[in-house]
Design a protein around this nucleic acid. Structure first.
Length: 295
DNA sequence: GACCAGGGTAACT
DNA sequence: AGTTACCATGGT
């Protein structure tokens, strides 16, 4: 891959294992807008990123608009997990189980984003018992109401996800008015405990996965599934395997004859895929969900 | 109108 | 320790 600046934009040429649609639409991230096919604006890292991708065989390139090499190495390289060799990840997954080959091939452009911890925590608390479009809608609503505005071009404004300080100034009643429903007190507790330092990102990062999960689950409204999503998407723990209703169906279809407990599925998958569990989960989730596997 | 959604909690056996 | 009703809200 070649990376260079060109008239204020950054070009990633000959890029492999990177498809912006797979990355954003696979369900790990809720804070972006689609401008056109293969063109998005992402809210992340306290700023906006306008991205487009051309997948023609002769010009295989990604454009990050209005940015530079310096910002790429400081910010986006980490966000897009560019230090991970996804070709090697896929080989390892397929060595473990050839039956994931279809999912991995069809969704071969997925990368696990290294997202902001606090935004991931609140977003996945919101996600419970909701469909992805609703989650995106609520994340956008909270951001518009309490977050900082950024110029998104064409006279549009997009709003960053509120900081801990910004959300800490919001009452449960105000949260309810944002239509988050029974999640309002959950969000309020999570915000308070991050704000007062009881829940600390660096501390969580230094813990073992099981210990960090237990700590996250002390937040009112955070159970096993949400904690695992925060570990995977917000704390870079690629060895966890969140099991939601979809993963339950997909795994039952692929590995079990009929119903199986979520807890059993999770430990089964973690044992099977080890350090690649999170990647395997995301290939399976996106492919399985799009194809209605097990429904 | 019933049923379900990237679940979790409290109140039951 | 393992089940079950209920929780707001929006979509089919």
């Amino acid at each position: 891959m070649k990376i260079y600046e060109q008239s204020g934009n950054l070009i990633l040429e000959g890029i492999e294992n990177f498809d912006i649609e797979d990355i954003l639409e696979c369900g790990q991230c809720f804070h972006f807008v689609k401008k056109a096919d293969h063109e998005y604006i992402i809210c992340a890292k306290g700023r906006l990123l306008h991205v487009s991708q051309s997948n023609k065989p002769d010009v295989k390139q990604v454009i990050f608009y209005n940015t530079c090499l310096d910002e790429y190495y400081r910010v986006w390289s980490d966000y897009f997990d560019m230090d991970t060799d996804y070709a090697a990840v896929k080989r390892s997954i397929l060595d473990i189980d050839q039956r994931l080959s279809t999912a991995v091939e069809k969704k071969s452009g997925i990368r696990i984003l290294r997202q902001d911890f606090f935004e991931t925590l609140i977003s996945f608390i919101i996600s419970q018992n909701k469909q992805i479009p609703h989650i995106k809608q609520l994340v956008a609503a909270l951001s518009r109401r309490y977050g900082t505005g950024c110029d998104a071009g064409d006279g549009d404004t997009m709003y960053l996800f509120p900081t801990v300080e910004q959300l800490n100034a919001v009452t449960v009643e105000e949260l309810r008015a944002c239509r988050v429903g029974f999640r309002a007190p959950y969000i309020r507790d999570a915000v308070s405990r991050v704000y007062n330092g009881e829940i600390n990102e660096e501390e969580l990062r230094s813990m073992q996965a099981g210990e960090a999960r237990a700590k996250l689950m002390t937040i009112y409204g955070v159970g096993e599934k949400v904690a695992n999503c925060v570990l995977l998407f917000g704390l870079g723990r690629m060895d966890v395997f969140p099991v939601d209703v979809w993963m339950k169906r997909i795994m039952e279809y692929m590995y079990f004859d009929g119903e199986m407990k979520k807890n059993y599925i999770e430990s089964f998958a973690c044992k099977k895929f080890g350090q690649y569990a999170g990647y395997a989960q995301q290939y399976l989730f996106y492919y399985g969900r799009e194809n209605g596997i097990g429904k």
